[in-house]
Amino acid sequence: MSERDALLGDIAAMWREADPMPADLVDKVLVAIGGDNLDVEYELLHLVERSRELEGVRGLGDAYTVVFSSGPYSLLLRVGTHAAGRRRVDGWLSPPQSMTVKVTQQADTRYADADETGRFEFEWLPAGLSRFWLAFTDSAAEPDHPFATPAFEL
């Protein structure tokens, strides 16, 4: 510490001001690590990309896609924002697996099923911080524990 250059303190102050942590990041982390899921063994899906697209049909509002992946698996979520505070989610896992999909939010837990095409849908979910959990229903499928996304704003 005694050797520490004063200039490094200035650099830290500069970055703190120029590129501050998002105001809600701590809350996102607390949602992600909170709850009763800590004992569950799961495979974490990583965010690959998040993109906005403009809906072709008028009146339906914006939609965007979020892609997560882990190993050979990719999870694509297409999120429609057709009503304030509500999100429609169409999901697709590739390569496909039949599975149960669980969405955990601050106040809610909701479920959907995907058949062997790997597709599922939530006609509407409340907007807000969410985590998706995928549990394969085919007992021969690998891995034998669920996948989970990080918490992200739906």
Binding site: P22, L25, K28, V29, A32, I33, L38, L44, H46, L47, R50, P150, A151, F152
Partner: peptide, 15 residues
């Protein structure tokens, strides 16, 4: 977005 994801992953890994 990617940075937020990495920070979350780090904490999940710690837990």
């Amino acid at each position: 977005d990617q940075a937020e994801d990495v920070v979350q992953t780090t904490w999940l890994t710690l837990v």
